[in-house]
Amino acid sequence: MQAQEIYDKLKEQFADAVIELKADAPSDPFIIVNGSELFKIAQYMRDKEEFDFDYLVDLIALDLGENLGAVYIFSSMKHKHRIALKVIVPKNNPKIPTLENLWRTSDWLEREAWDLMGIEFEGHHNLIRILNPYDWEGHPLRKDYVTPEEYHGMKVPY
């Protein structure tokens, strides 16, 4: 199935939550959806027979200036098609519902997005840091991050 077809079928099911489709070559096409309805859309995409997206490939966290973005890439083993969904949330209240109960991959991917970018996933059972030490402060991949001067008595800059 192509991206335009998937977008049309989702639009007729969830009218307002699916916002727009951006497909300019050579970039990959992606669909922008509303953050609060993400769980229902994702469950529909996994369970419906003609979509059958049973494999979550990746979850990418982006820093877009005043907003934060999260891109989900889904793929289907049976029908061999892929699509990307994008969710945009404001930086002072970055909350997205968790997809942990649908795809078990998102357990560690969401912890990494929280650790490096600071996006909060509501309903996750164990949202703590995974790559940085447990008492690290700040979210390093944001554009306005400043490297700390020292950590536990060790000098950090060169």
């Binding site: 390093p140 060790m154 000098k155 950090v156």
Partner: peptide, 18 residues
């Protein structure tokens, strides 16, 4: 510190610091 000397926020620049 190697190739990560400039922008590595989590890298110790040389083990002779400890």
């Amino acid at each position: 510190g190697g190739p990560y000397w400039e922008h590595g926020y989590h890298v110790l620049k040389g083990v002779d610091r400890i």
